[in-house]
């Protein structure tokens, strides 16, 4: 499988994604999918920017992590996001913990709006595959 294996992940390297303008279409699809309730017409549900940050991570040149499992997250919502705002995501790996067949990777992430303000931030913990004989670089 192509992607970044545990051994390939650099510590403290800051990765910035392209932007994404949040539209009322995104919000409508999200509300239909989850049946969360809308606060008002222009409000963006707080979990939606968090969901976008994972997809934004796929829009950088570096191959995505070979994630075996998403283990958990700690997340803070600092400001509300409105329809029409353009967000991007900034992340860096702060901890790598090797285990026998895989490794735990902790990533710090921020969601930043068009004014450069951090609107959400937190830590993601993943279980990432190690290279095997077949995938050795």
């Amino acid at each position: 499988m192509t992607g970044s294996y545990f051994e390939d992940v650099p510590l403290e390297h800051v990765e910035e994604t392209p932007g994404l303008t949040i539209t009322s279409a995104h919000v409508a699809i999200y509300l239909g999918l989850t049946r969360e309730l809308a606060a008002d017409g222009g409000a963006v549900p707080d979990v939606l920017p968090l969901c976008f940050t994972t997809g934004l991570g796929w829009r950088v040149p570096k191959p995505p992590l070979v994630v075996l499992a998403f283990m958990g997250l700690d997340w803070q919502v600092l400001r509300s996001v409105r329809v029409g705002d353009t967000i991007m995501s900034r992340s860096r790996v702060v901890t790598k913990r090797p285990m026998r067949d895989a490794g735990v990777v902790v990533e710090e992430r921020e969601v930043v709006d068009q004014r450069g303000e951090v609107v959400q931030r937190g830590r993601f913990t993943y279980l990432v595959a190690k290279r095997t004989k077949e995938t050795r670089a």
Binding site: H26, I29, C51, F52, T54, G55, L56, W58, V67
Partner: peptide, 13 residues
């Protein structure tokens, strides 16, 4: 499928 399209997260998982 809808969540993959909405979020852009197309992880093989």
């Amino acid at each position: 499928v809808i969540f993959a399209g909405l979020s852009g997260d197309y992880n093989v998982l």
